[in-house]
Amino acid sequence: MLDLSIEAVEVTFPGLATPALSIDSFHLPAGGHLAVTGASGSGKSTLVNILTGLERLKKGTIRWGGTDIASLSESRRDRWRGETIGLVMQDFHLFEGLSALDNILLPARLARVANAATVERARELLTIVGLSRPEQKVETMSRGEMQRVAVARAIVRKPAVIIADEPTASLDSESGAQVAELIVTLAEREGSTLMVVSHDPALIERFDNRIRLVGGRIAQADAQVAA
């Protein structure tokens, strides 16, 4: 469980006059849940990339529980991300040819941190997300099932933060609702800080804290979030 603070962040891309993202100050308390909305091109993906350290921040600071992620080296940031952030993406990014269980464990195994307890937790999570066949190959699953595997993968290492980028956008409404429910309840159960980027109204309305991005800036902040 980590809190997030953003200070004077500005992300520019070459050839673009206006910054893709520009946030003067933002704070999300530890264990807080936040929904980020906005039209496409409003800077949502950029926000996800810099918050997860996938992209290096050049201007401003982002601290997760006091860690300035821009100060970490590329390899340290990989390790930090693996330990701290559970990521769920629109396109699942599961690896074909591997079973559901192996997919959940793959990042942990590649980081050489998977032990018997991790495997046990992966099996438990599979049950929680409602999948009964751990050895089933992911390519034989429905899209909803795939995203549920992805959710289990995101939280198998007990991340302090869960970030979901359009987790329901490529699912039908029923599967989408299931996945949305899972993400929110699991984040609560694990006590993780949760941030969801979405324009799925059914998902957004579960959140009290919402921000809306317009042209890379926070245009509207609901509830107790400091703008």
């Binding site: 991300r81 990014h93 793959l106």
Partner: peptide, 16 residues
């Protein structure tokens, strides 16, 4: 690229 990026995003070290 996507697959490799995804591996990194989900916490695989670049050495892996």
């Amino acid at each position: 690229r996507k697959q490799i990026g995804a591996l990194r995003a989900f916490g695989a070290p670049r050495e892996a």
